[in-house]
Design a binder for these strands. Structure first.
Lengths: 221, 221
DNA sequence: CACGTCCTTTTGGTATACCGGATTGGCGAC
DNA sequence: GTCGCCAATCCGGTATACCAAAAGGACGTG
């Protein structure tokens, strides 16, 4: 594996795990020193992460992308028709076995399972549905949305109730696909996107003070 | 302006104008020599163009992205809900003056006007609508789709009739937005996307032999 | 003439040196 | 003590040197 991908993956993980805070400044030399590679692959990795929206330019400098509440709202607006389209197509193209695999993924999440797993499955579920749709652009777009949402979702304060609701919505979507009801599936998917957005924004806005205290830059709204 | 952006823009134009054929091999040293800059900005520019889908890796090598008929179909599938959403939102958010400006853009295209203008307006129209929707992700996604479609659209054999149909569809969409009819606008937009796909694929498939003869790599279907 | 084989060349990947501009920190004048 | 100026430092942008791997070609052998 190339140095560039190595550094990219490590830095990506460092950012997504909030090991470096949103809004923090990054210098190429710091990344170079931390992940042992020269500046050439470091710069390449940074440019990739910029395209993923995890890193931004601030003038000439690099910063870890701040968490932007307006962006979360825009992402939901963008995501809604994509998810709806994905499940619509999945109704026509998915095979029962694929759906079983996705359902097993959801089943793996039960009380007591570490939060990392819930978080990962919450992402993979949507990407997996997009894959069933069989359209690379849909997959890439949804992957992009999910990586941009990863940190906000991680910071969301989860209650038992909200978690249950999200998973119920996931299962409803899956049920519609299984019964080959594209319109219903699209409706459920769209509603799930809106609900997720509301839960996310409500939680972050309520917790805004606490997040700021932890040194995380929150912008927007 | 930085060397990297300079090289990026020039190489982009060279590719979009089909000055370098789809499928042709590119070496970093060739780009370096042609556009006068060292390999560092050249590599950066190539990576950007890779993200835009105009350049690909073929093993370790760089190639100009071939024209892929399957990709055109996938793009249409991806684009349809995006354009529909964009015009829906535009109904709520657009101001009459914005619509006048877009209509003026369409008006600028009449028989006798050079093809470059038609081509450019055909792109700008959709990007402008996305801008009216006021969602950056929508704008970026549609811009991405349009750059990927730029070369196929350029190679499409245009008849007077097909051009007229496309512009009639554009005007219908604009009319729906002006009358604030989101559902109708979405329907028209979706139909326009499908029609465009059909025109494009039909023309390219009919002309496949001729395109191959010109040295253009066509893949898919 | 066909097929290997070896050597040269070329390629992308990486490390590093150098530059100009921006920032910072400290020192001195007031 | 405060303000301003200058020098040292640090940053990203660029150019370039070096490497290993792959590709290509020349030559010799069957």
């Amino acid at each position: 594996m190339s140095q560039m991908l190595l550094i990219h993956d490590q830095l990506r993980e460092t950012i997504l795990s909030l090991d470096i805070g949103p809004g923090e400044r990054l210098t190429e030399r710091w990344v170079e020193a931390r992940f042992q590679g020269s500046r050439t692959p470091v710069r390449a990795a940074l440019m990739r992460l910029e395209a993923e929206g995890l890193v931004q330019r601030d003038g000439r400098n690099w910063i870890v992308a701040p968490i932007d509440l307006n962006e979360i709202a825009s992402l939901a607006e963008f995501r809604e028709p994509l998810e709806a389209t994905a499940v619509r197509l999945a109704c026509a193209r998915a095979r029962p076995g694929d759906l079983d695999a996705i359902e097993a993924m959801l089943d793996a999440c039960r009380p007591g399972v570490p939060r990392e797993v819930w978080h990962q499955v919450g992402t993979d579920f949507h990407v997996a549905l997009a894959r069933l749709a069989g359209n690379v652009f849909l997959v890439r777009a949804i992957e992009g949305v999910m990586t941009r949402l990863a940190r906000p979702r991680w910071l969301e304060v989860w209650t038992e109730a909200s978690r249950a609701q999200a998973w119920a919505e996931h299962r409803r979507i899956l049920g519609c696909i299984r019964r080959q009801e594209p319109d219903a599936a699209a409706r459920e998917a769209a509603e799930h996107v809106r609900d997720t957005r509301d839960r996310l924004l409500r939680s972050l806005e309520e917790d805004r003070r606490g997040l700021r205290a932890r040194g995380f830059v929150l912008v927007g709204r």
